[in-house]
Structure formats: structure tokens, C-alpha cells
Computed example of a mutant assay.
Amino acid sequence: MQGKMDRRSFIKFTGIGGVVFASGLGFEVMAAEKSRKSHPIYKDFFFAQLSDTHWGFNGPLINPHADQTLAKAIDSINNLKPQPDFIVFTGDLTHTTDDPQERRRRMQEFKELVNQLRVKNIKFLPGEHDASLDKGQAYQEFFGDLHYSFDHKGIHFIALDNVSDPAAMIGVAQLDWLKADLEQLHPDAPIVVLTHRPLFDLYPQWDWSTRDGQAVINLLLPFSNVAVFYGHIHQEHLYATEHIIHYAAKSLIFPLPAPGLAPKRAPIPWNVNKPYAGLGYRSIESYPQKKTYSIDEKSIAPGELI
């Protein structure tokens, strides 16, 4: 079912599987209601997801405004009314560098920019550009734990690290932590998983997978209300593993081609006639009691440089 409402399009899922490509679409997932043993306090809210900002990237043919795009997104979010409850950055905050000192300088600059957000409740996840070369050492100095969980208005959020291991694995220790975290939840609890790489094998040839991601999915499958929000692939993408829906987000630096539709994984060049095409962030409206999410994809307006 598709329709338009305030730049949103909705799709309802009931136990589907497979791949759907989307551009400029939002998605809604409705899961079946079940009785609960406990009754958490539910309250509707929305949060913003930004991904793959790659602060420090330099490529005029790819994004001649690379030092402006994040600032424009921050300005856009600061003008949202009402403001989101919190903001999450799903990885690749900075662009990779072999120089540990430069890595930290970029992280410091990124953090100073992000401090301009009106919303101060900000969650961070590492990307491989941030964490794979030093197993997350510098990242933790600036942004804290590589994986964690928290609860917000009836939804249990789980942030996973599938990047600090250069082999693109979650690892046994984190899987044990995840299992213990999930054991505290009712099977009907609404769960949102935040991660950088896709947990499924989207396109391993392009490093678009997590080697032990199926182990995570297996731990999540007994729970009836799970949604996954991730980044890494620099485009909107929708995938279902049984009843679990996975949503990829656009980048704020450059788009990438759809998996397998180009000879190699390379940034799509800047279009002077359509500046900021394929770039953006999203707001996610969350309805915990209904276990429903609607996504509003936000574009970056060309406008004046900041």
C-alpha cells in the first residue's frame, strides 16, 4: 500500500522477505499486537538519524561542499518544530586516515560541529572509517562505548558495533552481551537496533555485510517487534529477514550506486544541476504502543553556503 502524506509514503509489512529498493520513500512497519507481562510507559516521539558524514573527506568532483553539508544538515534539524527527542549518528562520522593524530583532529572538529545542535541528547555509533584501523581506540576517547543499549518511552534501543573488528564481525563477547541484554525483555517488546553495516549479506563483494550478522538476527528473531536502522551503503534501502525490517539511510557526503548496478563501489559524482542529490537525513516517528514507525526522508537544500 502506497500513498503520500507530508512527503511520506507508507508500506505495511506482514511477514515478507526479500529486497526492495526505494528512493525518496518513507516506510511504516506494523507488527501484530500481543499481550504483555509488563506495562512500560509508552509515549509517541520522534528521533533523527544521520549517517556517513565522513568529516574530513576531500573530493571536489564528488562533493565540492564537503565542509558544508553537515553544517547545513545541523541547521535543518535545528529548525525542526518540534525538536526530536534525540539524534543518532549511525557511523562513519569521520573519513578514514592512517594518521592517528589526524583521526583525532577530525573527531574533535566533528564533535564541535555537532555541539551546535539544539538537541543535546545525541547517540553515536562508529563506522569502519572511525574505528577499524585502531579497533575503536580514538573513537572511544571522543564518543564513548562502541556498543550499548538504552530505553526510551517504551522502546528498547540496541546500538551494535560491527566495524571495530577489521574482519567486520560482531564477535563472541558482544554476542554474549546482546544475548544477556535481550533476555531481560518480553518477546513482544518493541526493539530498535542501530548499527553501521547491514547485518545481512546485502552485497559482500562491496563489504556490505556483517560476517556473523546472522547470529545477531537469530537472537532477534524470537522477538516479534524489531526494526533495524543502519548506514554504510549511502542510500535508502529496505530488506526483510522474516518479520525484521532493515532500513538503510542516505549519506551526508556522497551517494553510492545500488548494489551490483555498477562495476565497482565508487561514489556517484556531484551533479551541478542537482546539488545534494541523494544526500539527506531522516526523522523517525515512533509509536511504541502500536509498534509502528514512519520515516520522513529529509533532503539537503542547496541554498546559500553556511
Rank of each mutant, 00 (worst) to 15 (best):
M1N: 06
Q2M: 01
Q2K: 02
Q2I: 11
R7H: 03
F10C: 03
I11S: 09
G15N: 13
V20R: 14
G26T: 11
V29Q: 13
M30L: 15
A31M: 11
A32R: 15
K34P: 03
H39Y: 15
Y42M: 10
K43T: 14
D44H: 10
F45D: 10
F45V: 11
F47T: 07
L50H: 06
L50A: 12
T53Y: 02
H54L: 12
W55F: 07
G56Q: 08
I62V: 15
H65Y: 15
Q68V: 04
A71N: 02
D75C: 00
I77Q: 02
I77F: 02
K81H: 13
K81A: 11
Q83N: 02
Q83K: 11
I87G: 08
T90F: 07
G91T: 07
T94Y: 06
T97L: 10
D98K: 14
D99A: 06
Q108G: 11
V114I: 15
N115S: 14
L117G: 08
R118E: 14
V119I: 14
N121K: 15
P126I: 03
P126L: 02
E128L: 01
S132I: 07
L133S: 10
G136P: 08
Q137W: 03
Q137N: 06
Q140L: 02
S149T: 13
F150N: 05
D151I: 09
D151S: 15
G154A: 06
D165T: 06
D165N: 15
A168T: 05
A168N: 07
I170N: 05
V172D: 15
Q174W: 05
D176F: 01
D176C: 00
D176W: 00
W177M: 00
E183A: 10
P187V: 04
D188P: 01
A189R: 10
A189V: 01
I191W: 01
V193C: 01
L194M: 04
F200L: 11
F200P: 00
D201Y: 04
Y203V: 00
P204K: 07
D212N: 08
G213E: 04
A215S: 12
V216L: 02
I217G: 02
N218R: 14
L221R: 13
P222T: 04
P222W: 06
V226N: 05
V228K: 09
F229N: 11
Y230P: 05
Y230A: 09
H234K: 10
E236S: 14
E236I: 03
H237W: 10
L238A: 12
Y239K: 09
T241S: 15
H243D: 11
I244Q: 06
I244P: 05
I245T: 14
H246G: 08
F254E: 05
P257T: 08
G260A: 08
A262D: 12
P263Q: 02
K264A: 10
K264C: 00
N273I: 01
K274T: 11
L279I: 08
Y281I: 03
R282K: 12
R282H: 07
S286P: 00
Y287D: 12
Y293C: 01
G303F: 01
G303D: 11
I306G: 06
